[in-house]
């Protein structure tokens, strides 16, 4: 088992708004190992993007710690050392907003190079970065409007690579792209990971994608981690009722895939508003197995199988001996 590169301890991010406090991320603990792809999966309002933003330092957590390679990096990016900024990079969701329309690819890639002085020859390094993301060197002199969505995202990946980082937070890097292009981008990312020994925190709403790229999957719902497990185990034995609802809602193309979905849990209800979180377990208003205790007590995250964590009152540690109430 390789070492932890990144961990979060009791991470919280509350946003004070005029109408009340939004608990975007609430008491999140996680560990990410070196060289790992951790899939952070959730729907809108799950807090997955807020979590990613705290890690790269777009804003500091309200409480809790972000630990990177043993050091506390809970501050915002403005207070982090240049070295930490070099080590942790991000790729954003929207390809059209992630590149400055007025700057050529070369100008965009030169910024990290001149700040971090990681290359002796800037021009050579620009071509090298482009070849890393499998774009021809002529692309250096193009402007974003001349690039397709996938190409823009490749340039954004090249920009993140320019500082020789060890951890990249990928915030839905392919969700705005067509599937045939998504396949290309994922291929490039996976080759880069092996070649440059990178670790990815892959934020997404797409579980099918995570089935194919993540080493471990972490499910978030309304600011909390609901389930974490190694990918194989996660898809073979999903435990949390929300995970099951999510899995059975996924549109799939083939009968073979339909067969691996868990027993159908029909999606009902709406995701609660972040301002008025339900008391107890925040999933209880939509949960088909809701019990009295769920309405008042938020369950803790427990290891129900080796490496497989889940927080649900149905599953105390010895859940195999106990029968769930509907059985």
């Amino acid at each position: 088992m390789s070492n932890a590169i990144l961990s979060g301890e009791g991470l919280q991010k509350y946003f004070q708004t005029r109408r009340g406090v939004i608990k975007a991320v609430d008491s999140v603990d996680f560990v990410m190992r070196e060289g790992e792809v951790l899939g952070v999966v959730g729907e809108s309002g799950s807090g997955k993007t807020t979590l990613g933003n705290m890690i790269v330092g777009i804003y500091p957590p309200t409480a809790g710690k972000v630990i990177f390679k043993g050091g506390d990096i809970s501050q915002g990016a403005g207070h982090r050392s240049l070295e930490i900024k070099r080590e942790i990079q991000m790729v954003f969701q929207n390809p059209s907003s992630s590149l400055n329309p007025k700057r050529s690819v070369r100008q965009t890639l030169e910024v990290p190079l001149s700040v971090h002085k990681t290359a002796s020859s800037v021009g050579e390094r620009v071509s090298e970065l482009l070849s890393l993301v499998e774009l021809p060197p002529e692309y250096a002199d193009r402007y974003p409007e001349e690039l397709g969505g996938g190409e823009k995202q490749l340039v954004a990946i090249a920009r993140a690579l320019a500082t020789n980082p060890s951890l990249i937070v990928l915030d839905e890097p392919t969700s705005a792209l067509d599937v045939s292009i998504q396949a290309k981008i994922i291929g490039v990312l996976m080759r880069l990971k092996d070649r440059l020994n990178l670790s990815y925190m892959f934020i997404t709403h797409n579980l099918s994608l995570m089935r194919n790229v993540a080493d471990r999957v972490m499910i978030m719902y309304l600011g909390k981690v609901r389930e974490v497990a190694p990918t194989e185990e996660f898809f073979k034995n999903p435990i949390h009722p929300y995970t099951k609802m999510l899995l059975s809602s996924i549109p799939v193309v083939s009968d073979a895939e339909e067969a691996v979905k868990p027993e159908k849990i029909v999606s009902t209800g709406e995701i609660a508003g972040a301002l008025n979180l339900p008391p107890g377990c925040s999933f209880h208003p939509r949960c088909p197995f809701v019990m009295e205790v769920c309405k008042s007590v938020d369950p803790p995250l427990l290891e129900v199988e080796p490496e497989h964590f889940c927080n649900c009152h149905l599953y105390p540690n010895d859940y195999k001996d106990k029968k769930a109430p509907w059985q």
Binding site: A183, L209, R211, N212, V252, E257
Partner: peptide, 18 residues
């Protein structure tokens, strides 16, 4: 090729796309 490029719930990695 399009259907091959869609990530599958059954796993098996992602091919090159188109």
């Amino acid at each position: 090729l399009l259907i091959k490029a869609v990530p599958k719930l059954t796993g098996g990695g992602i091919p090159e796309g188109i």
